[in-house]
Design a protein around this nucleic acid. Sequence first.
DNA 1: CCCGATATTTCAATTATTTAACTATTAAAT
DNA 2: ATTTAATAGTTAAATAATTGAAATATCGGG
Lengths: 150, 150
Amino acid sequence: MHVEKLNQLIERYLSVSFFVTKKAAALVKCELDEEMTNDQYYLLRYMSKRGVCTSTELASAFMVNKSAITAMTNRLVDKGLMKRTRDENDRRVVYLTLTEQGDAWLKKTEERIHKLVESFIMKFSEQEIESFIETYEKLANILQELEEKA
Amino acid sequence: MHVEKLNQLIERYLSVSFFVTKKAAALVKCELDEEMTNDQYYLLRYMSKRGVCTSTELASAFMVNKSAITAMTNRLVDKGLMKRTRDENDRRVVYLTLTEQGDAWLKKTEERIHKLVESFIMKFSEQEIESFIETYEKLANILQELEEKA
DNA sequence: CCCGATATTTCAATTATTTAACTATTAAAT
DNA sequence: ATTTAATAGTTAAATAATTGAAATATCGGG
């Protein structure tokens, strides 16, 4: 590929990913209750998919320090959406799970978010979405492998 | 499109965009000097592209309140990377520009970030990147228009 | 039993953000 | 021309997210 062409693509990628990321965050926020944040939504979403989690796992999934997870957990426990349970065999480990309230909140919110994404996705042909997501996932895999090598 | 298929695509999109966004942020951070943040980089990048900016414009581009821009501006002015200049005709307006130092920092950083993006982009065919970015830009336009209607 | 590793939390600091109130300045209306 | 609206930006108090270092508690091997 020509250097100039390559640089153009890089610039386009940087610009568009910046804008879409910002805008998507803003739109997701609109779908959440006033007192909930995007990060809290993503955390609950991740936990719900994985079932039982630990701080360590979440810290690695979210690429932050464990103390950041402790802080988020505290906020979500205070809100009654999450709970801690100590492992009886290895008492160092703390399991994190959604409470029933957390489950209910997430279910309600997931519906809204799905509708939101649907409203955009419907503007593309199935073929175009499929290709786009495939490339996106390929990128994700490249980034994932990078992590494992290091 | 079948409901089930649609839901699968939505889930895939949510998962992959979450991961790539997080990971990309982490990688960008690695390329920055210790005392700089991703947001600061994106702000300087945007300003450099636009030339002269105002708080109001930045707030709208970054989809945050103007006071958030004031705070970021303060930090960047303290670091000597940005400066404020009052409009002599309309004294309410404050113009924001990069200092020479800010310019130099950005130039150096942009090089690093370009190399970073390049290292991933090179794993795709020109055709695949092109299609991906085109769809991504189409999405950006849809999101942009949404804003203008509302 | 002791030592090093593991899992998590605590603490202090910084950044990013919001909302409401405030200052200053301009433009518009009567 | 004087009051009123609107506009541009800042300040202040609060919260969330984050980091890094130190602390606590527990486990496993020798």
